[in-house]
Write a protein that binds this DNA or RNA. Structure first.
Lengths: 218, 218
DNA sequence: GGAAAAATTTAGCCAAAACTAAAAAATAAT
DNA sequence: ATTATTTTTTAGTTTTGGCTAAATTTTTCC
């Protein structure tokens, strides 16, 4: 299969490709914290393996095979993040670093069984969509409530966890899927939120909770 | 911290040390499937890191620090094996290879939280004891029931899991800790077992169940 | 359009962890 | 107690994935 270094390159290229259509050597160098010269070397290797096309001085793009691999790595990463946060009780700031290691464990069976064990979650604790086994993922643009802009109405589209304590809290605050909400203000002290529901009710939401409620455009 | 290669050496030396008191270059070479010359190189490196003492031509022994590291790696390995088998539903033959990768994920917090999530299990699916955070582990020689010799009386000494469905089944079959059992026969077809209890009752045990009941000598 | 700046590549080097072939030490056998 | 055999080490290479310094190409700016 592929080495950890190769997988990290592919993953980074995938993410950068969403902003620039051709990923430059320097952009990769900055993201991976390696020198441009090393990036050039690796791009040649990855081109030889047909994971990307590379044109001297003009950067690279993933091939279909490269994108497939990238989505698979992202799938592993986000499933582990979900596991760490949901099952082991890690805070969402802590999960990324550990998932960076776990994502490189090679075993298709492991990924599939983990997915099933977690109940086929569609979003990780940061609100990013988790690709399915074929690489498809929910494309809807959405953000956790705590990052949603003030005064812009939005729709509750998903929750990041099925924890019953979370679900209980949501139902008590009348925050069901499909509810329309407006963030009235964010308090600087603890980054908690005041939001207004359709019926005009004002509800106070901790930052912690706001991370698990996902909002999309109406 | 330590590299994957270093961790694998330390783990192998720990296991070999239980048979020979000084671990020879050749023994390590055979176990790790690397050439003796490579082993010599690595032993020098590990000695420099004070994980073992090494005397030219006479093999090596782990230092206290080396043993501590070895037990920590074994702890990680067996906790993951338990997770894979108990939570993800892998068969016990499949878990070893995947755990070989997972054991090298570096994060003390991960190990501790995983341990807690699993309910602090004391034995892995193969019946091997899982060291605790300080390196202590149950030293009793014991085997899963499904590997216990026929006609040899044994004592139920531990169960490999606290799963309540398992515990329910055990109490129904009157297989409490301390019970004396004799394996009457093992059926070749599904490797299930017929065992006799103290009161003469015959009980039928699936292989699946037999893996989670540990037996030691009377 | 040509000079300066920025980006990228080439060339040569390093460390980790493996390898082979040959030398040296330890062990076994006559 | 020598010799033969086995084990281990030394010396020199390879591959992977980094690095620096210098050269080259592209881009930008007057």
């Amino acid at each position: 299969m592929y080495t950890v270094a190769e997988e990290n390159y592919i993953k980074s290229i995938y993410h950068l490709q969403r902003q620039q259509q051709n990923v430059s050597t320097n952009a990769l160098s900055a993201r991976l914290q390696t020198r441009p010269a090393s990036v050039t070397d690796m791009l040649k290797k990855l081109e030889a393996k047909k994971l990307l096309t590379y044109e001297k001085y003009y950067g690279c793009r993933l091939t279909a095979a490269g994108s497939r691999l990238a989505l698979n790595i992202i799938r592993r990463h986000r499933l582990w993040e979900y596991f760490l946060s949901e099952k082991l009780g890690f805070g969402w700031e802590e999960v990324h670093e550990i998932a960076e290691q776990l994502e490189h464990v090679q075993s298709t069976a492991l990924t599939e069984k983990l997915d099933a064990f977690l109940g086929f979650p569609r979003f990780d604790p940061h609100g990013d969509p988790i690709p399915d086994g074929t690489g498809k993922m929910s494309q809807q643009w959405q953000l956790p409530l705590c990052e949603w802009p003030v005064d812009k109405p939005g729709l509750v589209s998903a929750v990041g966890s099925q924890d019953e304590r979370l679900l209980e809290m949501l139902s008590q605050k009348k925050l069901h899927i499909g509810a329309v909400v407006v963030v009235v203000q964010q308090f600087a002290f603890d980054r908690s939120l005041e939001i207004r529901l359709e019926d005009g009710c004002l509800v106070h939401i901790s930052e912690q909770l706001g991370k698990f409620i996902f909002i999309k455009k109406q």
